[in-house]
Design a protein around this nucleic acid. Structure first.
Lengths: 202, 202, 202, 202
DNA sequence: TATGAATGAGGTTTCATTCAT
DNA sequence: TATGAATGAAACCTCATTCAT
């Protein structure tokens, strides 16, 4: 009954299902093979509608997806509970979590990387979003955690960024290019040492 | 009749110039914008011929290029001269060289990464080639350099591999995803500390 | 509630602003690039409303604009002041004015010509309007100007029509197809001679 | 038998049939309604082939057609036989011929005008072609016809051009916009007077 | 009566690949 | 073997028009 209507009006619903379809397609066939027509067909939305909400087509949707799906990169709680004694433990936890998230959304993260490589533009805003996130985390952990109080805020943000980039870079290579260590646990062990060193040295 | 004959090259010559053209085009316009017709035109070889030697077109050529151009990842000489006292210096040299090579062949390395992500198959042989290279380097430097003589060969290979992967991972992220440090020199400085740590700790 | 009500106009007001928008758009971007959606957006009227008043969309609006904007082709005053001695002067004035109006509304006149060529139907009424105009002018100038009193009315109308057509034809070609003379002033000079000849010979 | 071949190779034949199809379509449905797909379908040539020979699609074909069909605008013979005594006769002949050609290819000339108005670019080269033609005619008639010998060549070219433009402008208006005279013969009579005047006055 | 979200036919163009010569 | 003209599927995107609200 609902279905027989030719024009169904529910803007947000449509946008969401476009995102959902896109996300699923990323996992199923990868960024390169996705076309606007395919998205339209699967979402059961007309191409016109897709271009109404995403004027640049595929790349607009990818851009939106990056922000929309913007997975919790770091949970602030992890940092808040951090202190001198549990530092290694917390860092280990963060690494493990990060690795797990990437494994669980393997195809998605692969596709995001593909998308970034084929269109750096896409990543511009995402980069800003992440930097914003670092600033927020830095502020919060300095407030709630006296362990970080005498670290200058700028320095804290920068350290966070280097840690994050190192983490991402090595996990990316390990998962998508070639395994750096025979087991994930060895990678975690290695990363723990590296990241602690970065934190301590800065 | 003999005179009017066009300058005709033999099979291998043609294949080589296809590779050359392809490599140059990668750096000039990037993987996405290369078309088989363009390769044919520039190489002065017919499309038919291209498909004769590379039945899958562009991706065959990319695959071949990966093996063909397999750039000297590490120069063995760099390692041979290495000893306890000049270790930091040599590592710094290697990092700088690696970074420079990637910057100078930006599009090529970008394309290689794209190719790997979209077709892991392609990377299989390349991975083996690299592992082979590590073994060779390990053997050679143990022979020529008493600094490494009491390190077990397996351990040496493994350390080389971790160092290389870390180096590649961070340079890749710095160049293709987002700059990790404001300047290349800061990245080099950071990498130097990291890699030395890895070497020392192993 | 009353307060939040948008400023709403009545039917005729809307139609008029659609015409105005259309006319401005013609001169700004040309007929081809105008879309119904754009008209709606700029006029601040919904597309639905546009289709309510102009069931055939763009071409309806063009048709209406032709009648609505029916620019003063000839100012009767110009003729009224005409006499044997100032004939060349007045003719020159009319030509210059005509040319200026076309230059100033280049895109509009271009669009009108395009519209006529692709849909002669559209021009039917316009043609009648113009003929009516000639009759009116002929009558008026005969009444107010004894210079034309002994010319038979039919003949006067016909002469007016030939003059007008010649004028339009040459200005049209000069502006829209290819410049007939290097400068506008040379065209005016040429047209003056031609039109005077036509007038004298008839 | 011939038909069963999937790939038939006859470059020039294909180009010619594209022109033929285009010309016929101009007469049948007009420039605006022609699409590359339609041309391809009717000509029985793939779209790819069309774009191989006409890289800008429709407008390339129109451009080519303009040059290809470039109807004999003036027959040089008409001018060669011209002298002081038969001038009116020859001019009349040229006008009648011109008018007849336009009547016989009404739709084509209409379409050309439409095309020019919607894309002036198209006309650029055509304009040059015509100017070239005037130069050639001017040279030839000065050589073969002592009637024109003491007219400066520049002046002759210019007069030809003004005559041609006036002729075209009025015929265009008479045929495509609104009849200037009740009968063609009256138009011819009028044009004859006008053109002779232009020739004499210059 | 007014709105504007939604539609989708229809146009343009590209390029990997085939195949007649 | 080599050639390159020819193919056509498939991508992109626009915009006139419809219709649920």
């Amino acid at each position: 009954m609902e279905k027989s209507k030719k024009f169904s009006r529910n803007k947000q619903e449509k946008i969401n299902s476009i995102y959902t379809t896109f996300y699923e397609l990323l996992n199923q066939i990868g960024f390169d093979k996705i076309t606007t027509n395919l998205i339209a067909e699967i979402t059961n939305v007309s191409i016109g509608t897709i271009y109404r909400y995403f004027p640049d087509g595929k790349s607009s949707i990818m851009k939106g997806t990056l922000e929309h799906t913007s997975d919790r990169i770091f949970d602030i709680e992890d940092f808040n509970s951090m202190n001198e004694s549990n530092l290694p433990e917390v860092v280990g936890h963060i690494i493990r979590k990060h690795l797990r998230v990437h494994r669980e959304n393997y195809q998605y993260h692969l596709a995001v990387n593909q998308a970034i490589l084929s269109n750096k533009e896409l990543f511009k805003d995402y980069g800003d979003t992440i930097n914003q996130l670092f600033e927020n985390i830095a502020k919060e952990i300095r407030e709630s955690n006296n362990f970080f109080q005498n670290v200058p805020i700028k320095s804290l943000i920068f350290t966070l960024s280097v840690v994050f980039n190192t983490l991402e870079a090595l996990i990316h290579r390990h998962l998508f290019i070639t395994p750096i260590f025979p087991t994930d646990e060895e990678l975690v062990h290695f990363l723990k040492k590296m990241l602690l060193m970065i934190i301590i040295m800065s």
